[in-house]
Design a protein around this nucleic acid. Sequence first.
DNA 1: ACAGTTTCCCGTAAATGC
DNA 2: TGCATTTACGGGAAACTG
Lengths: 433, 433
Amino acid sequence: VSLLTKLLANALVVEKQPIMSSLPQRPLILKTKVQFTVTVRFLANLPEFKCPIKAKPVFDKFRGFDFSRADCKVLDVDTPGGGLVAEFGHMSIKDKRHPKSKGTSEPFSRLGVTEELHIIKFVADFQHAGLRCNIEASSLPLVVVSSTNQIPSAWASVMWYNMLCTSEPRNLSLFANPPPLTWKQLSQVLSWQFLSVGQRELDEHQLSMLREKFVDNPDDPIHWNKFSKNESAWIWIDGILDLIKKHLVDLWREGFIMGFVNRKRTRALLQEKKTGTFLLRFSESNNDGAITFSWVEHSNGETHVHAVDPCTKQELSVMSLPDIINHYSLRAKKNMTMNPLLYLYPDIDKDVAFGPYYKSSGKVKDGYVVRRLMPVTLMSVSFLPSPPPSPPREIPPMDMDMNMDTDMDINPDQLIQDLFTELTYLQNATISE
Amino acid sequence: VSLLTKLLANALVVEKQPIMSSLPQRPLILKTKVQFTVTVRFLANLPEFKCPIKAKPVFDKFRGFDFSRADCKVLDVDTPGGGLVAEFGHMSIKDKRHPKSKGTSEPFSRLGVTEELHIIKFVADFQHAGLRCNIEASSLPLVVVSSTNQIPSAWASVMWYNMLCTSEPRNLSLFANPPPLTWKQLSQVLSWQFLSVGQRELDEHQLSMLREKFVDNPDDPIHWNKFSKNESAWIWIDGILDLIKKHLVDLWREGFIMGFVNRKRTRALLQEKKTGTFLLRFSESNNDGAITFSWVEHSNGETHVHAVDPCTKQELSVMSLPDIINHYSLRAKKNMTMNPLLYLYPDIDKDVAFGPYYKSSGKVKDGYVVRRLMPVTLMSVSFLPSPPPSPPREIPPMDMDMNMDTDMDINPDQLIQDLFTELTYLQNATISE
DNA sequence: ACAGTTTCCCGTAAATGC
DNA sequence: TGCATTTACGGGAAACTG
């Protein structure tokens, strides 16, 4: 009997829920009122087991959650290994608390919902050799959420738990007094997230920039509150994971996105490079995941590093980043345009890197002339000489119309010079970090 | 007693459901499993009514739908008029049919769900002067849907019913054998839809274009199947209503959108006008609602009318139509740009019409140079002379880089000429309607 | 296979509770 | 009042079901 108990205690529990299609590979999070499937696997099928064994899933009732349906099921023979298995489909969790008596019960006094750890238990009763056996198996700790907006925090808990508690017994009260993680541990989990979402881990420079968000010294412990609470760095990182998943998988996998570089380092890196060199970095202020590009320009013996406002998910769903880079233009009142992006840092030709991802679009479709949205930075009418100290105008600069300007006999070098001079002027007019 | 019955039979029924916020003013459509509120109003409160009257909502059980909750309620005194009223909140409809026995029952044999007309009845029992009175009131016919994608069809039914049956008795089997509508009737309902959504009715030209979608002769009857069945014109019109609601209310209200003009008429109208005159029309092929602009250009004694591919809702949610018009550019390899849109038909200066709706956007934000997505039509490198008969290339034309072309000493007139020549070339290369 | 119909569920917004 | 948590439901897609 003790053997049986041991075998069943080692049972595997697998959950599948559509929630995982949102950000993939996020098991151990269940959403209330959403269907999922649990499977209990009994690793051996001893010949003595003649009678059918019935298992029943049970949810801990700590908080008032319970299964909406939890029927007994007979364990079937697993095809390849010969083990015993039962799959419980169309299960879901309901909050059974009455609107009035929703007081959190014991183990979770001061914890947030996403810090509560729950388990699914399986109980089986059967007779063996005249003995009544009562055995149990339980899942890994789960987090139960009621809305998708809780998933990032819930996943933080799952990661933290699994870095700390890899062996039994389960400590469901871990977050009542959460131990810290070393940077070595945390950086590993973080890197795995990028591997899982974007098929590429974080390199040492990226990790080093992230480290600064948590601790000054690589040896300092990182506390749970610093990681996951109020306006935490994790929420920012998770927004970027989602951005990669939805719009940047290819570029991330190829390693074209440095991503985690602050402005200071961006400047330092680009300054050394030739005009037109650029790099891609994630916005540090946008918590929903956004990406931007910076490029360097040398002229008149001066060096300038320019930054463009970040591309949001909404914009990327209209035009992909490779296309944005391909079509980005500076545009002056002279109605001349120029793409300042030439080489991906350190010196990869832009088209070599991104060319395979440009979306070709015909010129004509169903008799229409094709119009595309193009990323453009507009320059104002007259910024030279001696720019007026007025703040940036609120009136959008007029496009040129049919009556084209007549001063078109400028030379190309002068145009480039003018464009950059204005960029510099604009940049100086703002507070930089 | 017959007086009482009459009074209650005239009761008003009002439904409120969040569904109405999707497209507003679409009452008489209820979605299963979504909460709504019904109010029954008894128009008089005779002094003899001493005892409280209880009313109870009842759903016709034709199809297996029923209320999830339908408690009795006592009629209260209505504040201003002195009438009796009861409001039933948090009601919802559930499909009680067993997954096995979902056979449609009698009155709806061959009808689609959105052609089934249901009513909510209110029944009240009370004693008056020793007599037991059993009275009823019922709502206008309702359509019950299970998904928002059924709303356009459902609304078609509601409109059709209400054009035909303005008086009692209710004919719930109307769509078993639906009578036709005259164009006069239909055009009126359609016009009301635009009034309701966009605060402006359809004018005679717009109606005349729509009429051609239904009948050749204004006196021909319009049949239900022509209006609402398979790939019907109504679904197309409804997509445009939604487009107006979400992105074009202002422009529609101002009358800047001709909208319903076919290509032939577009050409005829614009040909007479000066170069740069344009008009806005709805895409006739996109069923989800899309809008495009066409403009005229005279050069070399030839006249060309150009059409741009339609703007979808997704694009409009990134940039509004006034901004798209304001920033639209033709762009040549010379990297010179030009906006061909000057006058809204017949001769309104573009900025006079749309200027108030341009969104100003600063040049700099948080130290970033602001980048905008701009609508641009790209021209290919060399289209002159004697354009090669090859099909439009699949390779997107390369943007210019820092190494600007050296042939910049062209004159503006020549550029304009070149741009239009290519447009004409492109247009001729495709099959036009 | 297929179309009409319903369910499922994410993501946003609003409501609710504490 | 503010924050944490839950509910509501539109919209797109998948699943159902005859």
